[in-house]
């Protein structure tokens, strides 16, 4: 399984996280769903839908937290029969990032994912460029940028 990054500074923290947490699939993206790095996905279409769904879950829970007048939920976990899905937010010099992790319950556990997610958070914060948040993507540029990102993420 390969790990690829659109933003090079995300690569090393992600590779370490995958190795230590035993994660099966990982997406690092902006809160708008723009993918910055991925591990384990074989098809671009899967990345696109996972990113959109992950961003939507974060947006929904942020809104619930807002209505409850509390800070946004730090992490979310869904446990299935064979797999767990973990979503966590990371504040970096590059803005807020969302990490989506799919882990196999035979290989990893929520405890391990949480433990090494803390490490991932610290590593991403240390590695992120400090020049500010990533630029807003204009609708006109969106398709081109998406296509370029996917090409990078799948080594084409």
């Amino acid at each position: 399984m390969t790990t690829r990054a659109v933003e090079a500074w995300t690569l090393e923290p992600l590779v370490t996280f995958v190795k230590e947490a035993g994660a099966r699939l990982v997406l690092v993206m902006t809160s708008a769903g723009q993918v910055m790095a991925q591990h384990g996905f074989s098809r671009a279409v899967d990345v696109m839908s996972a990113a959109a769904l992950g961003a939507a879950i974060i947006a929904s829970t942020d809104e619930i937290a807002r209505q409850l007048a509390q800070p946004p939920f730090a992490v979310l976990n869904h446990q299935g029969e064979r797999h767990g899905i973990f979503l966590g937010a990371v504040s970096t010099g590059h803005g807020k990032l969302v990490v989506l992790v799919v882990y196999d319950l035979h290989v990893s556990s929520l405890g391990l994912v949480q433990l090494f997610f803390e490490q991932l958070t610290a590593d991403l914060q240390a590695a992120s460029p400090k020049e500010g948040v990533s630029k807003q993507v204009l609708a006109a540029d969106f398709e081109r940028e998406l296509s370029e990102s996917l090409n990078t993420l799948f080594g084409r």
Binding site: L110, G111, Q114, L115
Partner: peptide, 29 residues
Amino acid sequence: LVSGDDGLVVAEQLMEGIKGVAVAALAAS
């Protein structure tokens, strides 16, 4: 006390400096 399936802390009584979350996750693994 650690949940064996999840690697999460159920209860703890630890001296200063011991990371309960890490002990739980790693011991369960």
